[in-house]
């Protein structure tokens, strides 16, 4: 089952929620829609669910335009951000709700509900009401309910954001396991990059109603195609540099090739990840270590350059011993192409 958004536009009054979104989710993959709040990711999901209509553009499922099909005939199971279980029904009745709407017999409903509760690890909670369950348990039941009708697509609208950190990690692993087990095409909306990178097959980063980049987590992290993606995914340093316009940039006294838009010239920001920055203790160095944070295998140094720019550098902990706060240091970059962005005047 493939899902395709084609040139979707949607405005709410003066606010543009979607501004020409083009995106495809492949058969059986977990696609995460990632972006800051207001980027249109939830609107896109709600269009797929049938709760919003696009102003223009199409939503295609297996190549078929579903824009005119009402929400209850779309075959899409959805888990919501807020706890959405029906408060007047038990866990089993909640899971069986969709089957009741499809007029499935009582015995079959019960059996299927039990099977689904087993699948999400809550077989003993069948008779509980939502208010008798924790947030994590409620979202598991909501997941079981979304899967009850064997939907073609599973839609997850920030299903973990109301849960505490530990439950969140467990549940996202479980969602991933279930999704792979059932091989169901899944669209997962989140604003949490760690959640997106750790669970999704591909991550679509959105900004202002458009797609910035859609790629596998590793590709997104290692070779972000735009400065926005680079900064939104992971931590990114901005170092002042001077682009020469011939595809190279001078930064920290080094000359490095520019990745992407090579024609940029003038003062630029050079974007580098903390793990790509090297720092070494150096009496003659013009930089000063201002803070260190031990993370086990690596230590994150915060270094102030001579011009006042702050740089974060992840150094193997065994090499970071001499680099205490206040120590003089030299900062260098590896000889690799770097991403640059013209500096706002």
């Amino acid at each position: 089952m493939t899902v395709e958004f084609r040139a979707l536009h949607k405005s709410f009054g003066a606010t543009k929620a979607l501004d020409g979104l083009d995106l495809t989710a492949r058969q059986g993959e977990l696609l995460a829609l990632l972006g800051p709040s207001g980027c249109g990711k939830t609107t896109a999901l709600r269009m797929l669910a049938g709760f919003e209509r696009p102003d223009s553009g199409q939503v295609l499922v297996d190549g078929e335009d579903i824009s005119d099909i009402p929400a209850h005939r779309r075959d899409a199971g959805m888990v919501f951000q807020s706890y959405s279980l029906f408060p007047h029904l038990t866990a089993a009745d909640n899971v069986a709700f969709g089957l009741r709407m499809r007029k499935v017999g009582a015995a079959e409903r019960r059996a299927r509900a039990a099977e689904l509760l087993e699948l999400v690890g809550l077989p003993q909670h069948a008779d509980r009401y939502p208010h008798q369950m924790s947030g994590g348990q409620q979202q598991r039941v909501a997941l079981a309910r979304a899967l009850a009708l064997r939907p073609k697509v599973l839609l997850l609208d920030e299903p973990l954001s109301a849960l505490d950190a530990k439950v969140r990690v467990q549940l996202r692993e479980e969602i991933r396991r279930l999704q792979q087990e059932l091989a169901i095409t899944t669209v997962f909306v989140t604003h949490d990059q760690e959640e997106a990178l750790s669970t999704a097959d591909r991550v679509a980063v959105m900004r202002d109603g458009r797609l910035e980049q859609c790629a596998s987590p590793a590709e997104l992290y290692d070779s972000p195609s735009t400065p926005f993606v680079a900064e939104f995914v992971g931590t990114m340093n901005r170092l002042p540099g001077l682009a020469t316009g011939d595809g190279s940039v001078e930064v920290l006294g080094q000359r490095l090739p520019v990745r992407g838009d090579a024609a940029t010239s003038g003062t630029v920001d050079v974007l580098v990840r903390p793990e790509a920055v090297d720092a070494a203790a150096d009496e003659q160095g013009s930089a000063r270590v201002t803070a260190t944070a031990f993370h086990g295998a690596v230590t994150r140094l915060t270094v102030a350059l001579a011009d006042g720019t702050t740089v974060k550098a992840d150094i193997p902990s065994h090499r970071a011993r001499g680099l205490v706060a206040g120590a003089a240091a030299t900062v260098t970059l590896p000889e690799r192409p770097v991403l640059v962005e013209a500096r706002a005047a």
Binding site: A49, G50, F51, P70, A71, H72, R73, R74, A76, G77, M78, F80, S82, S84, L85, F86, F97, G98, M101, R102, A142, R145, A146, A148, L149, L155
Partner: peptide, 13 residues
């Protein structure tokens, strides 16, 4: 949310 949850479970409005 109750309405939308019910609709995604196949219930007409």
């Amino acid at each position: 949310t109750l309405m939308e949850a019910a609709r995604s479970c196949g219930a007409s409005p």
